[in-house]
Simulated scan of single mutants.
Amino acid sequence: MIEKIAEQLVNLTVKQVNELATILKKEYGIEPAPSVQIENTLSKKEKTYEKEEKSVFNIILKSSGNSKLSVVKLVKEITGKGLKESKDLVDNIPSVIKESINKKEAEDLKNKFEEIGAEIELK
C-alpha cells in the first residue's frame, strides 16, 4: 500500500504537487521544510547577481579587418608596447589587448577599433 502511494506521489504533475502542498498546509498545518525555502532564497540571489552589470572588462581583438596596419598602430598607442609586440598581438588573434578596464574606457576603445574595421569583444 505504501509503495502504491509513493508511486502516485512520484508521478504527480507540478500543478498537482502545488495543490497537495496547499491542502497539507491548510488542513493539516504542514509546511515545506526550511531547506526548500533556503533553495528558493539562493536562486533569487543568483538571479540578482546575474542581473548586476559587469564593471571591469578585457578588450579582446577578434579580427583586424582590412586595415591591419591601422590596427597595429592603435594597439601600439593603447598598450604602450613597441611596434613588434603590437604586431605580434594583431597577428596572434584572438588576443587580449588591454585588461581590467572600466566600462566607459572599454566602450571607447571598442569604438576606436571598430571605426578602423577591427572586431573587438569585451569580456
Rank of each mutant, 00 (worst) to 15 (best):
V17C: 13
S100F: 15
Y49F: 14
A33F: 11
L42G: 02
L83V: 12
E115M: 11
D91W: 06
E77K: 10
S95K: 06
G117Y: 02
I38D: 07
I38R: 12
E53Y: 02
N18L: 14
I101K: 01
K112G: 01
E53K: 12
K103F: 00
L122T: 07
L20W: 03
L12T: 03
K81S: 07
E27C: 10
E115K: 14
M1S: 06
E115F: 05
L74F: 03
E105S: 07
E39A: 10
S100M: 12
E3W: 02
E121G: 04
E19Q: 15
S35F: 12
T48C: 09
K4C: 04
E27I: 12
E7S: 02
E85D: 14
T41M: 09
L12A: 05
P32Y: 05
E85Q: 10
L122E: 09
V36Y: 13
I60T: 08
K103G: 00
L89W: 01
S70P: 01
D108I: 07
E115W: 06
K98T: 04
S43L: 10
L20V: 05
G117A: 05
A118Y: 00
G65S: 08
N66W: 07
K68T: 14
D91I: 04
E105V: 07
V17Y: 12
S63L: 01
K104Y: 10
E3A: 00
S63A: 13
K54L: 08
E19K: 15
S95G: 10
E114K: 05
I120E: 04
E19T: 13
S95Y: 03
E114P: 05
A118W: 00
K112D: 07
K112Y: 02
K103Y: 04
D91H: 07
Y28T: 04
E107T: 06
K25N: 15
A33G: 07
L122V: 09
V56N: 15
N92I: 09
G29C: 10
K98G: 01
A6V: 13
K62Y: 07
F57G: 00
T48Y: 11
E121N: 12
S64R: 06
K98P: 00
S86M: 02
K81W: 03
K51H: 04
E53T: 10
S43N: 12
S63N: 14
S95D: 03
